[in-house]
């Protein structure tokens, strides 16, 4: 296998509210000898809200981001579930509707770009599983996480709608019984926690308009992990991370009990297992203290 190389779509969160995610992504990529070419030209994906206002504009902007990955001739790797969903959804719609693709390309031509549909779009989690291989990760582990019970929190936009998601990666995933993140935990030497909320919603996308609903979903998720005897949670999605890490007060009020657990980004968990120095993983940026590192 030659060196793996991807076009990295960081999304906005990794550059603002979850700096630790950006740091740990780069640290882990270096450790795994994966080359990430950052798409610095990329815009926001619209986070599944812009399309509620202007669906066509959302398509054009996402197609532009993909066009830049195509220019590099690389698969686009995302590190946010919602970026993954919006980008992959755009690709799916354009690849299956010649008329829509032509209308979008008419706009992209104005800025000298074209969407061809040649780049794959996959989340870093699936790039690691499909292309790098969990067996190789397992062999590289220097600090097995065997003393930890780790609760996987998948995040909706990596697993649903499953038909779309399964187009984007080779390892099949069932949204009702997902295994990818569990497999990654096991590869890192950890013990997985099975709990009802692991494939449920964290509430992030309704936080402003329906704060009680959102806080209840967050609270249920953390409570489920706690009741499953988890030491900490891990997620591939920075938006889920924001909810679970920073909103524990509102979540506790909503569900009527104190809920709080350290929450790691998937990249931080891999980094710990592979022996990356903790300071390169940005643990100090967490609101809920990561007290075991």
């Amino acid at each position: 296998m030659g060196k793996l190389k991807y076009a990295l779509f960081t999304g906005c969160t990794a550059k603002q509210s979850t700096p630790e995610q950006m740091m740990s992504t780069m640290a882990v990529a270096e450790k795994l000898d994966i080359e990430l070419v950052e798409l610095t030209e990329a815009s926001c994906c619209g986070a599944s809200h812009l399309q509620d206002y202007d669906d066509f504009l959302s398509l054009v902007l996402n197609a532009r981001n993909i066009a830049y990955a195509e220019k590099h001739g690389l698969t686009m790797v995302t590190i946010c579930n919602t970026c993954q969903l919006n980008t992959a959804m755009t690709k799916h719609r354009l690849d299956n509707n010649a008329d829509l693709k032509a209308r979008v390309n008419e706009k992209l031509e104005e800025v000298g770009l074209v969407y061809a549909g040649t780049s794959k779009i996959t989340h870093f989690l699936y790039a690691i599983i499909d292309d790098f291989g969990l067996d190789k990760i397992k062999k590289m582990v220097v600090t097995p996480l065997s003393q930890f019970n780790i609760a996987p929190f998948y995040g909706c936009h990596n697993i649903r709608p499953s038909e779309l998601q399964n187009e984007t990666h080779d390892t099949p995933e069932n949204s009702y019984n997902p295994t990818s993140l569990d497999d990654l935990i096991i590869a890192c030497g950890g013990n997985t926690v099975d709990y009802e909320q692991k494939n449920k919603c964290c509430g992030f996308h309704a936080e402003l308009q329906a704060p009680k609903v959102a806080a209840t979903l967050t609270g249920n998720a953390i409570a489920g992990a706690m009741d499953g005897n988890a030491d900490w949670m891990v997620t591939p999605c920075p938006l889920c991370h924001l909810k679970l890490d920073t909103q524990t007060h509102h979540a506790s009020v909503a569900v009527g009990r104190e809920v709080s657990l350290p929450v790691l980004h998937m990249q931080q968990m891999i980094g710990l297992a592979l022996g990356c120095p903790p300071e390169t993983l940005g643990m100090k940026h967490h609101v809920t203290k990561v007290d075991f590192v």
Partner: peptide, 9 residues
């Protein structure tokens, strides 16, 4: 809507 796609699934 929390955009979880449970309904689509």
């Amino acid at each position: 809507c929390v955009k979880c796609f449970e309904c689509a699934e």
